[in-house]
Design a protein around this nucleic acid. Structure first.
Length: 440
DNA sequence: TTAGCTTGTCATAAT
DNA sequence: TAATTATGACAAGCT
């Protein structure tokens, strides 16, 4: 704020016959004791958004250059550095002061920008905050997007969706059998077409795993555990479940070992008994039915090769039925494992997304606090500026203007004018009505 | 003994 | 139409 006595002419722009002049005893050519340059407050870049500066406001006072006072901006120092590029085209509407206020001293002026900032800017911030706190209602989110041209880029990372698992068709699962390879179309080492986390790393090469490979999965366990692998990893021996519950009594081969201590490896247990325990129900069945090829092949051979294989042998209807069941169950087992891994990975991805969103929310809230702080400081500066300017104005008698009767108004052309308080209040009310209507 | 977890299986729908 | 895949539900086994 700079007081400049050389700009007296610009401070007063009244003309004879001016309505306000006549009404408020500010005759043209009446010198103002201290002309105030409001160049620092000249918000030349004020935007049309601030409707208080609209022509509608100007009209009663500026029409016909009849403003009582025009505090023209100049180009010296500037608040422009503070406000210049913003929309803080503050109207210097003075507050309605209590009549007891000492009018000559710097009057206690309420926030001249309060309405504007609260209504326009803070509403947007609140809307954003609401959207965050309410959990991104799609409607609100889209509104936000429209309003702020948001480009958050948030997504649920569907890119993590599993790749085609069709490759599992060409892969194989391993079983306890260690049959020799007779087909080039699948790996005897066995894989489920789904390789997952680090827990599988030790097996990935051996299993020749292909297909879906999630980034990581703290939940994912060994994929399609091969009991035969337990020989190499004794610490995992306890993991090998043997779900033979579905077997009808007597359905198994009489030779099939009973499992009185299933899951508890006895130190006296022979390796062959342990192997038997690791065999699946279908493997026991296949052995009981004397199926002439391995379950690996039954499950993993492509359908053409599978049918070819069947045609090479003279198989009974019971054997064929069992083979088809083994194939169906084997494929479904792998499918179930893949399905579960996918599900867990989806959960992990969603958890990660939630963490990301929470981080974003915290960041936005921090920014909001900073903005509010900044806005508060700017409002205080404008208020101080208003008080200083208003306090320096003098009428033709050298008396200060009463804040209860006059107000400063900042016009869209950068000039500042002194208008009657009643007119200013009327314009404020009109402006508020307009804003309300616009919201509807 | 019980709870929670894992895994295999079935049924069914989708591909 | 057959084969395969995906997935919810259920049950058994394990810790």
């Amino acid at each position: 704020m700079e007081v400049n006595n050389t700009t007296a002419e610009t401070l007063y722009n009244g003309t004879s016959g001016d309505l306000l002049t006549s009404n408020y005893s500010l005759a043209p050519n009446t010198p103002i004791n201290q002309n105030v340059s409001l160049h620092q407050a000249s918000l030349g870049s004020c935007s049309q958004d601030f409707s208080l500066f609209s022509s509608e406001i100007e009209s009663p006072t500026m029409a016909g250059s009849s403003a009582l006072l025009q505090l023209a901006p100049d180009n010296s120092t500037g608040l422009n550095t503070t406000f210049g590029s913003t929309n803080l085209s503050g109207i210097f509407f003075p507050p309605q002061l209590n009549s007891t206020v000492n009018e000559t001293a710097s009057p206690e002026l309420p926030d001249p920008l309060g309405g504007l900032l609260d209504e326009a800017m803070l509403d947007e911030i609140s809307l954003m905050d609401l959207a965050i706190e309410e959990g991104f209602n799609p409607v609100q989110a889209s509104q936000l997007e429209e309003e702020f041209d948001s480009d958050s880029g948030l997504s649920l990372d569907s890119g993590h969706s599993p790749a085609s698992l069709s490759s599992s068709e060409a892969s194989s699962s391993s079983s306890s059998s260690s049959s020799s390879s007779s087909s080039s179309s699948f790996s005897e080492e066995g894989a489920v077409g789904y390789s997952s986390d680090s827990e599988n790393v030790d097996f990935e090469e051996a299993e020749g795993a292909v297909g879906y490979q999630p980034e990581y999965s703290k939940f994912c366990r060994m994929s399609y555990q091969d009991p035969s692998q337990l020989h190499y990893l004794p610490y995992l021996e306890h993991v090998g479940h043997n779900h033979t519950y579905n077997m009808a009594p007597g359905a198994l081969d009489p030779e099939e070992p009973k499992l009185p201590n299933a899951g508890k490896k006895s130190s006296k247990e022979k390796p062959s008994e342990f192997l038997d325990k690791q065999m699946s129900r279908d493997e026991h069945r296949a052995r009981a039915m004397k199926i002439p090829f391995t379950n690996d092949k039954i499950i993993n051979l492509p359908v053409e090769e599978f049918n070819e294989l069947l045609s090479k042998y003279q198989l009974s209807e019971a054997q064929l039925s069992l083979i088809r069941d083994i194939r169906r169950r084997g494929k479904n087992k792998m499918a179930a494992q893949n399905c579960r891994k996918r599900k867990l990975d989806t959960i992990l991805n969603l958890e990660r997304d939630v963490e990301d969103l929470q981080r974003d929310k915290s960041k936005l809230l921090r920014e909001k606090v900073e903005f509010l702080k900044s806005i508060r400081q700017m409002k205080q500066k404008v208020q101080n500026l208003y008080q200083e300017v208003f306090g320096r104005l003098r009428d033709e008698n050298g008396q200060p203007y009463s804040p209860s009767q006059y107000a400063l108004q900042y016009a869209s052309d950068g000039s500042v004018i002194l208008i009657p308080r009643a007119v200013a209040d009327q314009q404020v009310r009109r402006q508020e009505r307009k804003q309300k209507d616009r919201r509807k």
